[in-house]
Nucleic acid binder design. Structure first.
Lengths: 110, 110
DNA sequence: TATGTTTATCGTAATATTGCAATATAAGTA
DNA sequence: TACTTATATTGCAATATTACGATAAACATA
């Protein structure tokens, strides 16, 4: 017990959950919002922007990258990370889809 | 250490992370998708639809409700839960907002 | 080569999450 | 009242996450 029973859910559900989960932490929200704010995607100052230690930020960046939410690499002595549009679009489409379906229903009894 | 340092992030970031995190589990994705599929929102069979025990499903439902993603109550001997549109719309708007901003940038160097 | 700068990784402690058996609660029904 | 059905809560074990100090790795430059 303790581990998520991924094997019982569909691949789609697991993939979505992984993507969504990666954004389910305020530090990672903050990272994405910072990447959105800066013009340049070379943002070696990301550690200074967050109230967390350098190893912790590095770990959060890794999680975002593993999930596919950001892409990029270290280039010399600077990070070059940016948001991966495809992942954001996937999330946008998913919630738009749910929202549309809900509007069509309009039989909420609660 | 170990606990998320919510006090260092904005209220908006924390609220969003909480909402998103609630959907960051395949079982809770499956629950929302099931609620979307059934016409009726009286869905006492939700336990039978999921590959998890009744207490576990109950716990996931509670988390979704606490996060504001579903609303409703037990009515007699049946659950009456349904998706809370407001929460879904909030997520839809957030990702649509990010997506729009990304399109305007188009300076991805990665 | 030695030094400084930047990011990643390792190791570990604190905390949170997941899942379920057992049990409790609540409501309907015989 | 006793019984059945449906959901919630409790308690606990297994696992995952979060955070950071220490250290490593990669690169630039003196």
């Amino acid at each position: 017990m303790g581990a998520t029973k991924t094997e019982h859910f569909t691949d789609k559900q697991n993939a979505l959950a992984t993507l969504i989960k990666a954004l389910g932490h305020p530090a990672r929200i903050a990272i994405v919002e910072y990447l959105l704010k800066v013009d340049d995607c070379i943002c070696g100052d990301i550690v200074n922007e967050l109230p967390l230690s350098q190893p912790t930020v590095s770990q959060h960046l890794k999680e975002l990258k593993t999930a596919g939410l950001i892409k990029g690499n270290v280039e010399g002595n600077a990070i070059c990370y940016c948001i991966d549009e495809k992942a954001i679009d996937k999330l946008r489409d998913y919630f738009a889809h749910i929202s549309t379906k809900l509007e069509k229903k309009k039989n909420n009894c609660c």
